[in-house]
Amino acid sequence: MSVPRFWRRLKNLYNLIGTHCKKCGGFFYPPRNMCPKCRRNGVIVPFKFKGAGEVVTFTIVHSAAKDYAKLTPYILAIIKLDEGPRLTSQVICSHEDIHIGMKVKSAFRKLGEESDRGMIYYGTKFIPVES
């Protein structure tokens, strides 16, 4: 991830800020500038998600890209936020505990880094609610 690209998404990554269409009630994460349902009639406003959701499905990554190799094996899941949107994120918990339907909440973690000299990317991952 380039520095400008991370910087542009920083508020979304740190605080799960997406968008909400006030016309149809749709919620979007990552944020959309235009409502796919209402099109030009939509009224899009920023929306901060609570960070609560559940695991829709997951996989355990054993062979990862170079930047994530240190973390393997790690859990990558599709999370359905309580407000509706689905997003892909790591879930930090034991491999024995992860299951479809698991209630999770957001946590602030390192997403990655560009070697020992580069930027450190921070943002949101998920942990079990009971943690």
Partner: peptide, 16 residues
């Protein structure tokens, strides 16, 4: 700390 935790992630969680 977990592998993806550092002084900043810990500070953020405490601050929140």
């Amino acid at each position: 700390p977990d592998m993806d935790e550092d002084t900043i992630t810990i500070a953020v969680e405490a601050a929140r």
